[in-house]
Simulated scan of single mutants.
Amino acid sequence: MSLVAAAVLAAGSLPGTAAGSSVLHDDDDDDSKLTSQQRDLVETLRDVTEDYRSLDEAMEDGYKKVTGCVEKARVGAMGFHYAKNSLIDAKTDAHHPEILVYMPNRHGRYKLVAVEFLSTAKKRPVIAGVKFDNGPFPKTFALHAWVWRENPDGMFAAYNPDLKCRK
């Protein structure tokens, strides 16, 4: 099992498909709670992942499915994780997110909802003033950014309470 798959599975996952509304992010969402640095990060992430809104494009560029649908009871879901293992290291680069997170819409078509940074840095990384969470096992750190799906818990929350995995 890859480092990514092990990390995400250790965080709490249930394989399956996903349920939830198919409302994806649009530019009308309220980003007013973000700092200007965080808004710049979100804009960059949207720019660099625009083509990856199509799962086929992401897979053609080397992203591979590493988990089923990740969910935590009474908290919400993350989704299906697709990682580009060559990007997983101690560096954090907004132009090259290590993981793309997808959820199927009501028609079963996978849609990009978030990106996830995964770092093996020795010290907790920070990007745009946001500290990474502890990874699910030693020597890893992770940070989600819900750039294509509104998350009521916040842009950088790990789970989205509006989403759940089907069993």
Rank of each mutant, 00 (worst) to 15 (best):
V4Y: 00
K164R: 14
Y110C: 06
A6K: 08
V113G: 00
T49Y: 00
K131P: 10
D153T: 08
L143S: 01
I127G: 07
K131H: 14
N160G: 03
K84L: 11
M78L: 14
R149W: 04
E116W: 01
A18H: 09
S21L: 11
D28Q: 13
K164Y: 08
R74C: 09
R106I: 11
D153R: 09
T67E: 03
L100R: 00
T140I: 09
D28R: 12
M59I: 14
S86L: 13
L14Y: 09
L14T: 13
H95V: 06
G62V: 13
Y82I: 07
E150I: 09
P138N: 06
M78S: 04
S36N: 09
V126W: 05
V75D: 00
K64C: 11
D51F: 06
G76T: 05
E57Q: 13
G135R: 01
A18T: 13
T35C: 10
K65Q: 15
D31P: 05
N134H: 12
M103A: 08
L45C: 01
A128E: 02
D27E: 15
D29F: 08
R149D: 04
A10K: 14
R124A: 08
Y102F: 11
K122H: 12
D40C: 03
T67Q: 00
Y82T: 05
A73C: 09
E60V: 11
L34S: 04
K65W: 08
V75P: 02
K84A: 03
V42R: 00
V42M: 06
T49E: 01
P138Y: 03
D61G: 07
K65N: 10
P125F: 06
A142W: 01
P161T: 10
G154R: 08
K164S: 10
G79K: 00
G129N: 07
N151M: 07
P152R: 10
R166I: 14
Q37L: 14
K139E: 11
S86V: 13
S22R: 10
A77H: 01
G154Q: 07
K84T: 04
N151E: 08
L143V: 09
E43R: 12
E43P: 05
R166Y: 11
D47R: 15
G129S: 07
K65F: 06
T67M: 02
V101D: 00
A145C: 09
V101G: 03
A58V: 07
S86M: 12
A142G: 04
D30Y: 04
R166E: 15
P15T: 10
L163Q: 02
Q38R: 12
V66R: 03
V75T: 11
D61S: 13
L112R: 01
V48E: 02
M78Q: 06
D40I: 05
F132A: 03
P125I: 09
G129I: 09
L24R: 10
R74K: 14
G20W: 05
P15I: 12
P104G: 09
I127T: 12
A58R: 02
R109E: 15
C69H: 05
M78T: 07
F80W: 10
V42N: 01
V48M: 02
A5V: 03
A83L: 05
A142I: 10
D29Y: 08
L163G: 00
T120R: 07
D30V: 05
K33S: 15
D31Y: 13
F137C: 05
R53E: 03
R149F: 04
D26S: 12
Y52I: 11
S32T: 14
F141C: 00
Q38E: 15
S21D: 15
D40W: 08
